[in-house]
Design a binder for these strands. Structure first.
Length: 593
DNA sequence: ACTCACAGCGCC
DNA sequence: AGGGCGCTGTGAGT
């Protein structure tokens, strides 16, 4: 467990914590049921049934008092508000928070965690009904908004109270409160970023594709460059039929050409000497660009100069976000040049440098490792401390420690790292051993890893000594499986805590951005709700992009940097670890880094 | 026609 | 014996 007790003071009480509104759901005839609550989840006034217009008015009026809006599912409700021009500052997402508390080791004895599965356990955000990626944004009809009709009226309130009770009774209520607030803020941000979209210039994208692939052709046809390469591949392999898009076909052709290989992976091809290899590698690269981010992708996902991916907070077990559609978390560097700020605007691109090692240093209170990263590149700091010779060695060794490498260069360097940073490496080892035993591990703020499934446990039990049926093969399989789970928990604790830091970072950026006003005259044509002022438009695990009027870019940079330090304090109190950022104000995404 | 697993590769 | 993902195309199954 990462749980040293330092930093307890980071848990500041939130202003206006008593001011809570519950949206209990919608009634059969489409009314919104709103209940004012106090901080223990008890009603302070009778529930009211409001039309959507009345509800919007209520939200706008109530926002003056910085309330926390409690509702079942931000991803379903908040887009309705955004489309109507209404933003909220604080939320509590019952579905996301339930998932955390259900699983957390810190609340394992709570009523919430011990109850039978209920509708609150229905898993990640429900799929949008509409197949059109943008319909939830622009064609909001109330008939299919996905909000529950006629829920048990007190159900949401009861769930909220169960959550409050579980947190209050836990050993770390402050951390959990912060986690739930951060997760909920993330849900608001996710909806806002989807709404705003990432500025995307289709002309630049098209030029880029044409330069690489040749002019656009009808779907199903190969663009010129790909066709040329396919021809060369067939020529060099002496096989006029081979289809380079088919692994099986390709593998057989390569073997017939005398190459011994078991797959067609690029890194395996690279090791071989054959005139077909170079065009084949080039073909794979370009075919990937065409299929993943080509013209079809552009037509599907770019609407009105904006890329609107759906972010899925809590979509990954570690607490990282996932996305649905568009592959937003895998935007290849090749196409980032098409991410371009509006006229008179800039992109502030910020990325947390060596985030996970810094998180590990803080989690384990490894002062030596934290010192290596103070005010400098952490890997360079490790080299400067004489632990290893090169930055690359430092990086490979650190990644090995966090991912569980045992062989190769990383495995060889690990002992040196362990001597220099025994606390940090001790924490990853402890997390791995817990996983190998089938136990859960818990992040800094209280998100616990899932327990292994039935078949995992059965395999382990089967291989226990003295089990009459156990064979050598069973034991090997069990050990290998145990180590796999150990690598998962080893990484979980670092990746999950880093995800928490990132949520706090973004929430803080968002909070401060709200206070900035766009200068007069910089408002472009599109200014629904909040997109006329600096706003977050992209998030990628340890990196954010803010779209801002050029005149405010410097202030935005300061906000982003300040927010990183604040996030560090929220998670780790006074522990002296730096969270360094690489920040750049640019016109297009590819100019950063 | 539709679903599914897999290979492969993009991102962190 | 390297953690977490999403997406595409292929090819096998229904």
């Amino acid at each position: 467990m990462p749980g040293e007790t330092r930093g307890a003071r980071r848990c500041r009480p939130h202003r206006a914590e008593w001011n809570v509104y519950l949206l209990a759901g919608r009634t059969g005839n489409g009314e919104f049921l709103v209940v004012p609550l106090d901080s223990t989840g008890l009603e302070t006034a009778p529930a009211r049934r409001l039309s959507f217009a009345e509800f919007l008015g209520e939200v706008v009026a109530a926002e003056q008092g910085l309330p926390r809006w409690v509702w079942e599912d931000t991803s379903r409700l908040y887009p309705l508000l955004l489309a109507a021009g209404v933003r909220v500052q604080r939320g509590h997402d019952l579905r996301l928070c339930h998932a955390i508390l259900r699983q957390s080791a810190l609340t394992s004895t709570s009523e919430l965690a011990t109850a039978a599965p209920s509708r609150w356990d229905s898993g990640p955000a429900a799929q949008p009904e509409a197949p059109e990626p943008h319909s939830t944004l622009f064609d909001l009809g109330f008939a299919d908004d996905g909000l529950d009709e006629d829920p048990a009226e007190d159900d949401a309130q009861a769930e909220f109270r169960r959550q409050l009770t579980a947190v209050a009774a836990s050993a770390e209520p402050g951390r959990l409160r912060l986690l739930l607030a951060a997760e909920s803020a993330g849900a608001l941000i996710a909806a806002e970023m989807q709404f705003a979209g990432l500025p995307w210039c289709t002309e630049v994208h098209d030029r880029l594709l044409t330069r690489e692939l040749g002019p656009r052709v009808a779907p199903g046809l190969r663009p010129e460059r790909l066709e040329d390469l396919a021809r060369r591949i067939r020529l060099e392999l002496g096989d006029p039929q081979v289809n380079p898009d088919s692994q099986q076909d390709l593998l057989r052709a390569l073997q017939r050409a005398g190459l011994t290989m078991s797959s067609t992976r690029a890194w395996e091809l690279q090791k071989l000497e054959h005139p077909a290899i170079a065009p084949l590698l080039e073909y794979k690269k370009l075919a990937r660009l065409l299929s993943a981010n080509g013209w079809y992708w552009m037509d599907t996902w770019i609407v009105d100069g904006r890329f609107h991916p759906e972010y899925v907070p809590g979509g990954v077990v570690t607490g990282r976000w996932a996305t649905r559609g568009g592959g937003a978390l895998q935007l290849p560097r090749q196409v980032r040049g098409a991410v371009i700020a509006d006229d008179g605007w800039k992109l502030v691109v910020a990325d947390a440098a060596q985030l996970e090692p810094r998180i590990l240093a803080a989690l384990s209170a490894d002062t030596a490792m934290a010192t290596a990263g103070r005010g400098t590149d952490l890997y360079a700091g490790i080299v400067a401390s004489g632990v290893v010779e090169t930055r690359d060695h430092a990086k490979v060794a650190m990644l090995g420690a966090m991912y569980g490498a045992t062989t190769g260069e990383s495995g060889r360097l690990l002992p040196r790292l362990a001597r220099a940073y025994p606390r940090a490496l001790g924490l990853t080892e402890t997390a791995a051993r817990a996983g190998e035993r089938g136990e859960a591990v818990t992040t800094r703020l209280g998100r616990s890893s899932p327990r292994p499934g039935e078949s995992w446990l059965a395999t382990q039990a089967q291989a226990q000594a003295y089990h009459p049926g156990a064979t050598d093969a069973d034991e090997r399989r069990a050990r290998s499986q145990a180590r796999d789970w150990g690598r998962f928990t080893r990484n979980f604790i670092v990746q999950g805590s880093a995800a928490e830091w990132a949520l706090c970072w973004m929430a803080e950026i968002r909070r401060e951005l709200r206070l900035l006003q766009a200068p007069e005259g910089t408002v472009p044509g599109r200014s629904p709700v909040f997109t006329h002022a600096p706003h977050l438009v992209f998030f990628l695990h340890d990196e954010v992009i803010v779209h801002t009027p050029a005149g405010l870019a410097e202030e935005v940079e300061q906000i982003v940097v300040r927010a990183a330090a604040t996030a560090g304090r929220h998670l780790f109190g006074d522990f002296p670890v730096d969270f360094l950022l690489t920040v750049a104000t640019v016109d297009s995404y590819d100019q950063a880094k």
